[in-house]
Design a protein around this nucleic acid. Sequence first.
DNA 1: CCTAACTGATACTAGTTTACTATCAGTTAT
DNA 2: ATAACTGATAGTAAACTAGTATCAGTTAGG
Lengths: 146, 146
Amino acid sequence: MKLLTKNTDYVVRALIVLAMKRGQFISAREISKSQNTPYQFLRQILQKLIQNKIVVSKEGIGGGVRIVKSPSKISVLELIEMFQGNLELSDCMFRNKICQNRKTCVLRPEIKRIENNVALEFSKITIEKLVKKIGEKDEKKLYRNR
Amino acid sequence: MKLLTKNTDYVVRALIVLAMKRGQFISAREISKSQNTPYQFLRQILQKLIQNKIVVSKEGIGGGVRIVKSPSKISVLELIEMFQGNLELSDCMFRNKICQNRKTCVLRPEIKRIENNVALEFSKITIEKLVKKIGEKDEKKLYRNR
DNA sequence: CCTAACTGATACTAGTTTACTATCAGTTAT
DNA sequence: ATAACTGATAGTAAACTAGTATCAGTTAGG
């Protein structure tokens, strides 16, 4: 079971970079190089961020994308849903024979419950929190090196 | 995000049937008909159950499979891992640039934590519990009809 | 001892998803 | 003018999902 696909991986990384350089336009080429993400693939991902108004773009030399949505309001859940579709189970399981005359089925409520938990957890992880974690790690490192 | 695939869906249903008819050999054809699962697909699934010693088989007329592992000891987690591979994330995310000089990465521990929760939840759901839930629903129904 | 109902084993396949790559057009700072 | 950028969209190889198909061997009952 894979919770995250590559594009979610890449988009989170890109947004961490953009959040750390808030206010600046960063080009796809620069993010691609610094994060080791395939250039054209990253470009598609960034275009989706533009469509979803999480970043704005500027064309031409010195252009790129700039984060406009507050990193504290960008959750990993929203990114997962943006790039992997809705977290919900697409087709109802256990809709057949065992469940006939029962209206509901026995496994489905359990799966629903677990899925809701997963969604809740991912909704709590924001870009801001991830950026802070990187900061904390750096502080610890500095402390150790003293 | 799809937590369960079809074969996990089908295998849970098959095991519920087998648990409700413990001690008896039930043929793939019978399960296939009663649960509306594709016959050949179900046969492959049952063979995996045989390999994993959850059921035993009997060839020839009147044959089929019989459940031998206690339904209370068969968890949905174990079935997911049997049919969908390990629940763990296959490839380490966030292993690149952002994480360099940091040894660990910021998203990965979060994903790990969520995955462990999912695994824990699925490990608690056993075939026995699902069978009991069906029983409870039937009781309620009888009560309402009185 | 034949045959119909079974399992054992394995090969094949259509459709979807994943993870990219490629191309061409338009924009802008220098 | 041109090099560095985005906009939009088409193509594609590999893996995965959800099956189907085939042939061989086993066994209970008439």
